[in-house]
Design a protein around this nucleic acid. Structure first.
Lengths: 206, 206
DNA sequence: TAGATTGTTAATCGATTAACAATC
DNA sequence: TAGATTGTTAATCGATTAACAATC
């Protein structure tokens, strides 16, 4: 593993590069320069080259970057070159919406099951819903690459703790709290209300 | 308006401070020091004081910060001291989930209407759903503080353009694209797939 | 008063930008 | 070859941290 430490700022830009490269590829564009890419992202060409240089550099002097190759390299870096099995804890509004979101499956993130204390419907789309009492057995039998926390705020920490105890190494958290997990567990938050607060701030300060 | 330019880094921390202050207030805690707050957020006491100092400073030498007062000041800064009327464009999984999310209303963000090209149900919870042809009239008659873009990716730019043309000054965007808007329009993105990519990166690099 | 803790200036650290030799 | 554009080092800029006088 290429273990140069990459800053958070760089990591957060990688998915954006990837998105624009997908777009370029769809348009049939085969090569792109750091300057062009920079123009699309709204950053400097220097930064684009620095960012890729962190991973060794994927371009050719005097030519630029091959779109398909650069995209493939970014996919590798981001870990998008393999599928992931996800489960969602909490079959409320957000949990059900995520289960029904087709794009995830298309990108290799496969929702295999929903869990909730109360099973109102046995299926959401084509995803089965199980009671929370089934969680441990399910994870032990089927494994789970990513668990999505879509529960109420007040149980989110407990649920995270149970998942970690079951050996789940990756949590995608939609609850408005900061989860505390061991250092070998990856966490990403979707902080919707914080985003809404920032929007409110921006409105006020335009 | 106090027009010191505040960095993005500071702005993004404000909602987190606010969240922890809410928590402290609920616990009945009336005063807090920069050190304590820093411990909760996982930052340094220096940074906490610097951040508040940007807005004039809300503490008292030798005492710390009054929780209720600091929370009220942060609410003012973030613009949470008044309600907002929201509409949601796109009555798919995400749009409907957001319409049904009770916490928003509790925080003063009121979902007034959903819009979609196709009106399958006239109501989602207690929120009315209208056809896209009703959008212009609705906004002209009722106004709209914040429009939520929860459409398919391929129409998101068009929808954003229409909203901006109708005078909407604030967009909360769930589509995986970068919206281009005039400088007096505020935009905040919830980039779910980018977050998932970052999670994937983190899993791979733990 | 003595102790605690802020507000704020100065020092440090890290990220971004500029520059340019290497090279396709 | 001449032109273009990278990879990478050095310079700049901005954000974080440390320090401490002010003061409750």
């Amino acid at each position: 593993m290429g273990n140069k430490v990459i800053s958070e700022a760089v990591i957060k830009r990688l998915p954006r590069y990837y998105r624009y490269l997908e777009h370029l590829e769809q348009e049939g564009v085969t090569k792109v320069s750091s300057g062009t890419l920079a123009g699309m992202l709204g950053v400097t060409a220097s930064q684009v080259r620095q960012d890729f240089c962190n991973f060794g550099g994927f371009g050719q002097h005097g030519y630029g970057y091959d779109v398909a190759y650069l995209k493939r390299k970014l996919a590798e870096i981001l870990g998008l070159d393999r599928p992931y099995d996800m489960i969602i804890i909490g079959a409320g509004n957000i949990g059900r919406a995520l289960a029904g979101y087709k794009n995830f499956a298309a990108e290799g993130f496969r929702v295999k099951a929903l869990f909730d204390v109360e099973v109102k419907d046995p299926l959401v789309g084509d995803v089965p819903v199980y009671g929370m009492d089934k969680l441990a057995d399910y994870v032990k039998q089927n494994g789970c690459d990513i668990a999505v926390i879509a529960t109420q705020k007040n149980v989110a920490s407990d649920v995270a703790g149970r998942l970690v105890a079951l050996g789940v190494k990756s949590l995608w958290n939609f609850a408005p709290i900061d989860l505390e997990v061991p250092s070998d567990v990856a966490v990403e938050n979707i902080a919707m209300s914080e985003s809404l607060y920032v929007l409110s701030y921006r409105m006020k300060n335009k």
